[in-house]
Nucleic acid binder design. Structure first.
Length: 88
DNA sequence: ACTGAGCGC
């Protein structure tokens, strides 16, 4: 289950997401999206969990909650499929 | 160093 997390604190790290979601289930992967050129946090990230149901309740549990001193938005992530071509 | 809606190389 891929999870999209937005409105993160700019100093929040990937391990912070992993720790936050790991409290509700097993986190398979967690990543903070940073700027490719400067390396600064874009303020959002992605979390992948092994259990879909735990990920789902983790979303409703961590959505609009405070993380690292900032309220975050947690939603199911969209597929990375592009209109040009990618995943079929 | 800063900013604050939104989807990752």
């Amino acid at each position: 289950m891929n999870i999209f997390v937005a409105r993160l604190n700019f100093k929040t790290r990937h391990e912070d997401l992993e720790a936050a979601f790991a409290k509700f289930g097993q986190v398979t992967s967690a990543k903070i999206v940073k700027d490719r050129d400067t390396g600064r946090s874009k303020g959002f990230g992605f979390v992948e969990m092994a259990s879909d149901e735990e990920a789902n309740k983790a979303i409703v549990a961590l959505n609009e909650t405070e993380l690292d001193g900032r309220q975050i938005v947690v939603k199911p992530a969209n597929p990375k499929t592009s209109a040009d071509g990618g995943q079929a």
